[in-house]
Design a protein around this nucleic acid. Structure first.
Lengths: 197, 197
DNA sequence: CCTTCTCCTAACCGATCGGTTAATAATTTA
DNA sequence: TAAATTATTAACCGATCGGTTAGGAGAAGG
């Protein structure tokens, strides 16, 4: 058997898994989650279904691996940008870096967003914009402003704006998502600086 | 044959179609577009697949009918609210009425949003928030403000906020979408009144 | 009563789905 | 080189998909 016995993974094993994650990401980007069948993934990789299932124990495992790979990349990028920015500018950095990342990695985009929306159906409904809300709360605190404003909703709205900008960019490639993100950031700052919270 | 020959529809014909549109809406709300199979729809309606296809020429036609029914309802509601409001308040009325409608018709919600996102794949990518952008432009004009602001993006962000609020309400039923809409409206107003456009 | 038309079911169709199995290339390892 | 292990294929499995077909209830109307 393959990596079943907790053996160290072979070279070809690693290569195949990486390749399969890559082609699966592309297939999902092109045909959506629903259109990402096992045979389509196998065909795109130039092997048979059985070979795919030799390296992953189920189709779902392949898709999940592709999703986690893309998500890890995104989290890494956004996380880096947020850390590099000061506390007060962290929310803006979050918005900008996320939009930039998804503009630069159109493949990853669909995997991530469809995984978060379709979600398989029974996943834990993680607070998707919770981290952004936390950054916003910290930024307001650093500015000496009250934090009893409804930041959950504010983060939700900003997050929805990010999604919308990305979606627009996806089917209108000439639409500039970074320029749009700047407008969103300006709206974000107005919320962030408002006194009436 | 059935209503093939442009005959006036029978009573049972009308009733069945209405029932099928209704159960299809519910099935989609419960299982999503992907899970809305012909046999599931038929089963939920208490008849066989063939009977469904007797009243609709394809599964796609049933789904489309359900979608158009829900959309017409929503457009009617939002359109009425927008007309009732003055030009300057129309954008806010748009936001409020849409959130209210989707809160009050949770079934319709998923049909509409999934149809707009999944979209079947080849539909004309209609400007989803174009009408809102128009309302915002008119509101600014009525206030004597410049309209060269990027209202496409502004409407996009507000629209994304609406989606996000609805989505949050869908899997956290105790989250109050109308209160959230008020925060969104206040953000909208700040954009609407800003001079720097 | 007998025909006609509406409405529906049971059975079937080919295609595709995710996944399994047995046999066999290909590559390491002894 | 021979044995063992890794990697892959072709064929098959049962389930489900959307859709078709032949026929039979059941009411409507002559």
């Amino acid at each position: 058997m393959a990596s079943h016995k907790s053996r160290e993974p072979t070279l070809t094993e690693q290569a195949r898994r990486a390749q399969l994650i890559d082609v699966t990401t592309r297939v999902i980007a092109e045909h959506g989650y629903a259109g990402a069948s096992l045979s389509r993934i196998a065909g795109a990789a130039g092997i048979t279904k059985a070979a795919v299932l030799y390296h992953f124990r189920s189709k779902d495992a392949v898709v999940r691996a592709a999703y986690e790979h893309a998500l890890a990349d995104l989290v890494d990028h956004v996380g880096g940008a947020v850390e590099a920015a000061g506390v007060e500018e962290a929310p803006a950095a979050y918005v900008r870096s996320m939009v930039e990342y998804l503009r630069d990695h159109p493949h990853h985009t669909r995997v991530v967003v469809e995984a978060l929306s379709d979600d398989g159906g029974e996943r834990h409904p993680r607070e998707r914009w919770g981290p952004l809300a936390d950054l916003m709360r910290a930024a307001r605190r650093a500015r000496g402003l009250r934090t009893d404003l409804d930041l959950r909703t504010a983060a939700l709205v900003v997050g929805g704006g990010i999604d919308a900008i990305i979606a627009e960019h996806l089917d209108h490639p000439d639409y500039d998502p970074v320029a749009a993100a700047e407008l969103l950031v300006s709206m974000l700052h107005r919320v962030l600086l408002s006194e009436h919270g």
